[in-house]
Simulated scan of single mutants.
Amino acid sequence: MIINKILNVDDYYYDVFMAISEALTGFSVNELQATGLAETYYTHILGKIETATFIEFLNTSKTILENSYSQDQLKNSINAEIIANPSTQDIANSVITLWYLGTWEGAYVNDLSYKEGLVWNVMNAHPPGAKQPGYKSWAVKPVNSNS
């Protein structure tokens, strides 16, 4: 079983949300927690979609997580049971977008969601106007620079 208790949050579905977010984004639960937005995102989704729909998604996710004993099996199960299913596919795509871009249905959740979007880590960049790269960072060649 891949689900673990996270911090001191008592809501069982929150744990499932974090575990499936890890599987969908490729970032560890610790990295997702480090954004400072995990609980904010969870409660934001609860306020934006019907609770029954979100719980259906989380119950499907729970079953997949509990029955997957390898990363390959987990990946295949997510593709077959979540991504291929129209009733859960939209939520999965929205959860991925939420973590990477900090947006839900095209709008930022809050100011921090822009700054902490996972997309900046993937690009080895910083969010313009929000987090600066640091003093004298312009003197260091960019990662993967061809110059």
Rank of each mutant, 00 (worst) to 15 (best):
M1D: 05
I2H: 06
I3A: 02
I3Q: 04
N4S: 12
N4K: 14
N4L: 08
K5F: 05
I6R: 00
L7R: 09
V9A: 04
V9I: 14
D11W: 08
Y13E: 00
Y14E: 01
V16R: 02
F17N: 01
M18I: 06
A19S: 15
A19F: 05
E22N: 07
L24S: 02
T25K: 10
T25W: 03
G26W: 12
S28F: 02
S28G: 04
S28K: 10
V29L: 01
V29Q: 09
V29M: 06
N30L: 09
E31R: 13
Q33S: 10
Q33K: 14
Q33V: 09
A38P: 11
E39N: 13
Y41A: 04
H44E: 02
H44K: 08
H44T: 11
L46A: 03
L46N: 05
L46M: 06
G47E: 14
K48G: 10
K48P: 05
K48N: 15
E50V: 10
T53E: 02
F54L: 14
L58Q: 08
L58S: 10
N59S: 09
N59V: 10
T60M: 04
K62E: 10
K62N: 07
L65Q: 03
E66N: 13
N67T: 13
Y69K: 08
Q71F: 13
K75D: 09
K75A: 09
K75P: 02
K75Y: 06
S77N: 09
N79W: 00
A84F: 05
P86I: 12
T88W: 00
T88A: 00
D90G: 07
A92C: 07
A92E: 07
V95D: 01
W99S: 02
G102P: 05
T103N: 03
W104Y: 14
E105K: 11
Y108R: 03
V109Y: 03
V109S: 04
V109Q: 02
N110E: 12
D111K: 15
D111Q: 15
D111N: 15
L112F: 11
Y114F: 08
K115V: 14
E116W: 11
G117L: 06
V119N: 05
V119C: 05
W120Y: 09
N121S: 10
V122G: 00
M123Y: 12
N124I: 11
A125V: 03
H126S: 07
G129Y: 05
G129A: 08
G129P: 03
A130R: 13
K131G: 06
G134L: 04
G134S: 06
Y135I: 11
S137P: 01
S137I: 02
W138K: 14
W138R: 13
A139G: 01
A139S: 12
V140Y: 15
P142E: 12
P142F: 06
P142L: 10
V143N: 11
N144T: 12
S145P: 09
S145E: 05
S145C: 13
N146G: 15
S147M: 11
S147H: 15
S147W: 14
